[in-house]
């Protein structure tokens, strides 16, 4: 399942896939402040990527909310991981913080010569941002950034399951309406 749209010189797409098994320059991991990988996608990163990623992270934290760091992706299909410390659990000014986090990810990608990135719907799921809100902010913030012109060629937002994918698709389609 996938769908995409051209924005300037870049494309923005939506797919249903396991983000930690994607063949791409970099994917975004919604990180903890202390940069411990923990469970969930963190567990998949540890198992699929190997111990080198944890070693790299040892001296990079802790992060403040909205900050990001880039590591290699060990033995995973991706080349890099962008660890983004987004807002969690209904904390204050969640929308603004999400937007800033997403911008920081894209800036870090450009600074590291990363040309293709996969995002999750930021903050959705365990950290409690409602999926519709997360989908809208994630898609809109990326689209706004790419609209200004970017070296990044491809961005996809990865729905983990049908429920997330179905929430993402209309937000991408809404962009078409806005453009028209």
């Amino acid at each position: 399942m996938s769908e995409k749209k051209q924005i300037n010189n870049s494309t923005l797409g939506v797919i249903k896939a396991d983000i930690t098994a994607t063949e791409i320059d970099a994917f975004v991991f919604y990180a903890r402040n202390d940069l411990k990988l923990g469970s969930g996608f963190g567990n998949a990163i540890a198992l699929r990527g190997g111990p080198s990623i944890r070693k790299e992270l040892e001296n990079l934290g802790p992060l403040n909310v909205t900050e990001v760091v880039v590591t290699t992706a060990g033995t995973m299909k991706a080349k890099n991981i962008i660890h983004a410390c987004g807002p969690k659990f209904q904390e204050e000014n969640i929308e603004e913080k999400l937007k800033t986090t997403i911008q920081n990810v894209l800036k870090a990608a450009e600074a590291n010569g990363i040309e293709s990135i996969a995002f999750p719907p930021m903050g959705a799921g365990f950290y409690g941002v409602p999926i519709d809100l997360s989908a809208k902010i994630t898609i809109d913030s990326i689209a706004d950034y790419l609209a200004k012109g970017s070296e990044i060629k491809d961005v996809v937002v990865c729905g983990n399951d049908t429920r997330e994918y179905k929430a993402l698709v209309p937000k991408l389609q809404d962009l078409n309406k806005k453009a028209a």
Partner: peptide, 10 residues
């Protein structure tokens, strides 16, 4: 720990 596993790994 467990809730995050189930959300993200399935």
């Amino acid at each position: 720990y467990v809730a995050k596993e189930q959300w993200e790994i399935g």
